[in-house]
Design a protein around this nucleic acid. Structure first.
Length: 582
RNA sequence: CGGGGCGUGGCGCAGUCUGGUAGCGCACCUGCUUUGGGAGCAGGAAGUCGCAGGUUCAAAUCCUGUCGCCCCGACCA
């Protein structure tokens, strides 16, 4: 491919709207162009990378036993009503609008994921346990009505996703869900490894999608929106939403202070009250009222801690907790919001472990404009249930006692054990060996392809531009032909290009009539892993210059050695750049 | 959905407060020179100033409304 016959709109200046490095560089290197918020055109160069990511994903999915198919983005809303996800997804589910509710548009949604259509297929065609297990996957465009698209292609409303779904009769044993789950997990490691991406697999919360086990694959990058929690000993890694902490030691520093009520007019927050009473937030018990299954649920955490709703729900044995409104709080505590406390409160109360080792605490008095000081457990209130229900913070240790560290990260893949949530809802069954209908046990496995690309750029760039790993670089090699009007330069450049291309190397010939500096800057911005420079100066010395983008290392070789040298670099990079999760 | 910022040639911006000929840099086209780290000179093309109303002799500029985009937060499979 010749540069002058391709479309590569690079820019020297950074567009003002781009904040994170991957976004800035993708725009500057001419990989993408924004169309509306959360939707991007992949320009030819960007699309080449995306296609390479796609090819790797496809290859590994096939190797892991997946069967590729392609489902539409348009779904009948009835399927989503069957599984109750029209409500569960809310605004994330994009619906086609129409003035008339009877119009087909009103009954059509754009798929944010494909559990419903794939379950419908299996319901229709798989009737016997003998056809199981089966894993269907597709690489397809997804639509989600994200409230706030951001960070370039890291969070968009339209994106390319590989989604796989497996169907089983059993959880354990040959052909069971666990077996496929493990195989998919391994395939994911291969995929991210081949893309050269630093990643970590962590335990995740399975959230609204349901199911009982889930791992997220995270790429660590400062542009990420999630927090990855890892123990220093490397034994524990989890999403912050799920991370468990080891119990805090009992300081046994109680003075058995007397219970006292103090007026705290209009002071409703931990900060306000602690400032007013000159105590530390960690001396306060924060009392948060939730509702679960229609009943109040009270959570107690230390003042400087936050309730983790997912952990609370799990501890409470309910599917979901929601913050209670002012009316519920008023009715339960007899006080306005901001003055709740455990003393004398009649409701199910779950105390965080940290609260069980607090003495002489401060908390709301269940009386508007008043707080209590000198509050002690057992004497002033009883803790019947305690658990780990708070979000981990700096200073906490893993369940095995190793200090936790926090890193920003972006989710690039997710594997779930779904169970029968969707097959039950959609009445998708097959006959077991006894001739009895059984709901399919399902797993689902997603990868965001665009995010892989962006995460790779976040991980591998410098002040000059992108440093692609060989595996997903839009072109593996660029030949900078300086002095395009010198016949010998162009003849050799053209010959190198043709020989490399014939040898299976992705090569781009920069045949633009531009000054050398201009071409070098573009080559570095785009980040071709290998640059071969052919100029009349080098030619006079009988050499071609070959440079690695990542190491900057330059080799000067005779023209007849150039092809072999470059091919060797390409091949060794393909192996060397592979990563493993850690 | 709350808070903040911004919409002026393909890109980056000035001009808006104080109304009066739409401007600068990059990129683009033509010509000459230049050719190993984003060249120089000369000439040129390209913008209903987001959109709609209003005020005014006159609106990029003032007023009202509206749409879009970005950032922080909330939310998030």
């Amino acid at each position: 491919m010749k540069w002058t016959e391709f479309l590569i709109p690079t820019t020297k200046e950074t567009p003002a709207d781009a904040v994170v490095p991957s976004h800035q560089l993708m725009l500057r290197a001419g990989l993408i162009r924004q169309v509306v918020a959360g939707a991007y055109t992949y320009l030819p160069l960007g699309y080449r990378s995306l296609r390479k990511v796609e090819a790797i994903v496809r290859e590994e999915m096939n190797r892991a036993g997946g069967i590729e198919l392609h489902m539409p983005a348009m779904h009948p809303i009835e399927w989503w009503e069957e599984t109750g996800r029209v409500e569960a997804m809310g605004d994330v589910l994009i619906r086609l609008g129409s003035a008339s509710p009877d119009d087909w548009r009103s009954r059509t949604v754009l798929g944010p994921t494909h559990e419903e259509p794939v379950t419908e297929i299996v319901r229709a065609y798989i009737n016997s346990y003998k056809q199981l297990p089966v894993t269907l996957y597709q690489i397809q465009t997804k639509f989600r009505g994200e409230a706030r698209p951001k960070s370039g292609v890291l969070r968009t409303r339209e994106f390319l996703m590989k989604d796989a779904y497996s169907f089983h009769l059993t959880k354990e044993g040959p052909g069971g869900l666990d077996e496929t789950y493990d195989r998919m997990y391994a395939a994911y490691c291969s995929i991210f490894g081949r893309c050269g991406l630093p990643y970590v697999a962590v335990e995740a919360d399975s959230g609204a999608i349901g199911g009982d086990a889930s791992h997220e694959f995270m790429a660590t990058t400062d542009a990420g929106e999630d927090l990855l929690v890892q123990s220093e000993d490397g034994a524990y890694a989890a999403n912050l939403e799920r991370a468990e902490v080891s119990p805090l030691a009992d300081p046994a520093n109680g003075t058995n202070a007397a219970l006292a009520e103090v007026a705290t007019p209009k002071l409703t927050t931990i900060d306000e009250v602690s400032a007013f009473l000159k105590c530390k937030p960690e001396q306060m018990i924060k009392t948060i009222i939730f509702e679960a299954e229609g009943k109040p649920l009270v959570a107690l955490v230390r003042g400087d801690h936050e309730v983790n709703e997912a952990k609370l729900a799990r501890a409470a044995g309910v599917s979901k907790v929601t913050a209670a409104g002012p009316d519920v709080i008023q009715k339960l505590t007899g006080a306005d919001v901001g003055f709740s406390g455990p003393v004398g409160l009649d409701a199910r109360i779950i105390a965080d472990q940290a609260v069980t080792v607090m003495y002489d605490a401060v908390t709301g008095a269940n009386k508007t404009d008043h707080h209590l000081t000198g509050v002690n457990r057992d004497r002033d209130f009883t803790i019947t249930e305690s658990a780990d229900i708070r979000t981990a913070v700096a200073g906490d240790c893993s369940p095995t006692g190793s200090p936790l560290t926090f890193k920003k990260c972006i989710e690039i893949g997710h594997v779930f054990k779904l169970g029968t949530k969707y097959s039950d809802a959609m009445k998708a069954t097959c006959l077991d060996p006894n001739g009895k209908p059984q709901s399919f046990i399902m797993g689902c496995y997603g990868i965001g392809l665009n995010r892989i690309m962006a995460a790779v750029i976040e991980s591998f760039h410098d002040e000059s531009g992108i440093c692609w790993p060989m595996a997903i670089a839009p072109f593996e090699v660029v030949i900078c032909a300086l002095d395009v009007r010198v016949d010998e330069v162009m003849a050799l450049s053209g010959q190198l290009h043709d020989d490399l291309a014939a040898g299976g190397v992705d090569v781009l010939l920069d045949d633009r009539d531009q000054r050398p500096g201009f071409k070098f800057k573009d080559a570095e911005l785009i980040g071709f892993p290998v640059r071969a420079t052919v100029g009349k100066r080098g030619l006079a010395d009988g050499i071609v210059e070959i440079q690695s983008r990542r190491t900057g290392e330059v080799q000067k070789v005779a023209p007849d050695q150039a092809v072999a040298t470059i091919k060797e670099m390409v091949e060794s990079a393909r192996l060397a750049e592979r990563t493993d999760g850690s």
